[in-house]
């Protein structure tokens, strides 16, 4: 019984992860300029990858509970990978956004740009 519930939780988590990763790729293709593309790429792929990693962690812990001890290390290492992903991803996005603005690419369809105004002063 518990195994069946865990299996459905795993399906749901993997489904959410795949859906948001797909959305990130489509957003990358659909949005008009680099900043909005960064919105789609960073948020969606981070969230989707978190859910895929959570599914692997649950799978590892479940197999460990059933008595296969090699899966405990799988879960532990996935937690480390998740932490690395969660720290590095938004920082990289911030670096790209700053580089894009400093190299002179302005947001399209923008209603206001206070950074540009402050830079001119």
């Amino acid at each position: 019984m518990i195994e069946l519930i865990l299996r459905y939780i795993l399906y749901i988590f993997l489904g959410i992860g795949l859906f948001f990763n797909c959305l990130g790729s489509i957003g990358l293709l659909r949005f008009p300029d680099v900043y909005t593309r960064l919105h789609a790429a960073t948020k969606c792929t981070t969230f989707g990858s978190i859910f895929i990693a959570l599914a692997v962690i649950i799978y590892g812990l479940g197999c460990w509970y059933r008595g296969e001890s090699a899966y405990a290390t799988l879960a532990l290492h996935t937690i480390a990978a998740l932490a690395a992903l969660l720290i590095t991803n938004p920082t990289g996005a911030h670096a790209i956004a700053r580089a894009a603005h400093r190299s002179g690419i302005m947001p399209k369809q923008a209603v206001m740009d206070e950074l540009k105004e402050d830079k001119i002063e």
């Binding site: 919105h39 603005h101 209603v111 740009d113």
Partner: peptide
């Protein structure tokens, strides 16, 4: 973001 990807409604700016 899902809503904005699917409909394309944006009103961006830097504040």
């Amino acid at each position: 973001v899902a809503y904005r990807v699917l409909t394309g409604k944006i009103n961006p700016g830097i504040v």
